[in-house]
Design a protein around this nucleic acid. Structure first.
Lengths: 125, 125
DNA sequence: ATCGCTGCAAATCTTTTGCAGTAAG
DNA sequence: CTTACTGCAAAAGATTTGCAGCGAT
């Protein structure tokens, strides 16, 4: 996997966003910067970069995948009112993280996991 | 929401399956029993029935939603080798469930959550 | 010169929708 | 009779693919 100029730009732009865009939303963002980029390359590169662990793919939200430039461990909430998809630190998340670490430690066959909370975001509640 | 003959049949068939089918996979299953059923009705009814809480929609797996006739609390694993989607009781799951209950209890804005583990299933490991 | 990456357009796959007909009270 | 449900076909939406050209060693 070659880290081309385009791929570097994708990583850089994605890291700036806190919106966890879908591939087509992110295509619109990239297009403003580099109008000749194709949607095929966006799909392809988001896939390639997430497989390489350089960005995160959130395989949770209904239908479309979402992508996140922040690859550190954190949780997400899908707002049932505004539909937004936001970073989320629920009360009790430290205990939860410990439980999840423990589960991963005890079950060697688990690579990772996806978890998304559904409810009202701070703005909507 | 009317619990029509068709909807009862959908619930009944889905409860028999342990494969957590996608809507189109489930359409094929239903079609064998009732050939004139349309895929539109399958999509519509899986949506309606999961909104009514009579079946579970697993909004986690990459792209397509999957459906489960078992609405009790349990975990799922997506196998990275065979692609299967199976019920899963990891070691440490009781502690995990407690942590998750606690998070829901402490954060009144959370309705529910989706969690899926990625790794090797029993057959593939 | 090579080999992987990219843009373009077409193809494919998945899901939703409009509408006319049907079913059940 | 009324109202919600259903099948059909078309539309819409999302993602992938073939291929020729490009770009960076």
């Amino acid at each position: 996997m070659v880290l081309t100029t385009q791929r570097k730009a994708i990583i850089e732009e994605l890291k700036k966003l806190k919106t966890h865009p879908t591939a087509d939303q992110f295509y619109e963002v990239m297009r403003r910067k580099t109008p000749k980029i194709s949607i095929a390359s966006v799909y392809r590169n988001l896939e390639v970069l997430s497989s390489a662990g350089m960005i995160a793919k959130l395989e949770v939200s209904g239908t479309q995948n979402r992508f996140d430039g922040d690859i550190s461990m954190h949780y997400h909430l899908k707002c049932s009112k505004c539909g937004g998809f936001v970073d989320f630190s629920p009360k009790g998340s430290k205990t939860l993280s410990k439980s999840l670490d423990k589960v991963k430690e005890l079950n060697m066959n688990i690579d990772n996991f996806n978890i998304v909370f559904n409810g009202l975001c701070d703005k909507c509640k």
